[in-house]
Simulated assay, not measured.
Amino acid sequence: MTSTYFVPRGGLPPQTALTTDRARFTEAYAVIPARTLSDITASYLPKWDRTRLWVLARPLSGFAETFSQYVVEVAPGGGSASPEANPGAEAVLFVVDGALELRIGEQTHALENGSYAYLPPATDWSLRNAGESLATFHWIRKAYQAVDGLAVPESFVTREQDVAPVEMPGTDGAWSTTRFVDTQDLRHDMHVNIVNFQPGGPIPFPETHVMEHGLYVLEGKAVYLLNQDWVEVEAGDFMWLRAFCPQACYAGGPGPFRYLLYKDVNRHAGL
């Protein structure tokens, strides 16, 4: 399949730009527009060389609480031999531009556009840009919730291009999901999928359910229902939804509307 992933390039808007924006932070949801990912909002991490990132989500008391999500830009020769400071954190890496070398234990994987890696907690891994151009990837992190009698999932590396989307029932292909983990595999306590809509395809009812969501628009545009508000979104925008925030959408065309979706799954509610 041929896909185009939005890649932020930083920079700053000109002094003549209007301040008015689609940025929103409400009690039920947040919208971070693509232009927010500028030089002034970039962050840096210890033990990462020639690397900057944009923090899209982090746990906040009283809001979304289960995950963090970064867009990470690695310059040639950059990366980290000690990327994760929390041994209890699991991760998904999804590459949207360039090439990276991922080492998991004794094995090295060449990552490219569309590559997807799942890393369980306490994994020995490192990441390096051995190429000659910038590389960009999404890094989604969650504190893994172990369950007695369930093994921790193994690490794996795949590509979006090698995973067939699953059509939602009754949609004739207008709405599908690229699922990297079996939904019946209860070892996993989060799913990071890609949701695909053809032009005009909708979510035809307000989904209202227990999962927290992070949605990064990889491609296209849509009108998205967030709680009581219809918000226009496009490639590079990020949406952050609390549990039970109603959501629906209409894909706007002229091309597909696609987003990288995080949600927490398969565990009891904490009491």
Rank of each mutant, 00 (worst) to 15 (best):
D148F: 10
L127T: 04
T108N: 06
Q145K: 12
V152R: 15
W54P: 01
R9Y: 04
V7K: 00
L56M: 10
H191D: 01
L225C: 07
V233S: 02
L18R: 15
L186T: 13
A42P: 03
S68Y: 02
K263F: 08
G10N: 01
V147I: 09
V55A: 09
V92N: 07
Y118K: 11
G10C: 00
T51I: 04
P121Y: 02
D49E: 06
Y250T: 12
Y116G: 10
S126P: 12
A130H: 14
T41Q: 00
S3P: 03
E207A: 10
D189C: 05
G131P: 06
K263L: 02
R50M: 00
A28F: 15
Q161Y: 08
P202L: 07
T66S: 09
F238N: 05
H213E: 08
M211D: 12
S176H: 06
L127N: 05
E207M: 13
L215S: 02
R242T: 09
D185Q: 03
A235N: 00
G62K: 04
A122D: 15
S115C: 05
Y5N: 00
S155R: 14
E101P: 09
S82C: 06
R58L: 08
A89T: 14
G11E: 03
G252I: 07
L134N: 09
S68A: 02
G105P: 14
F25I: 11
T171F: 08
Y118V: 09
L261R: 07
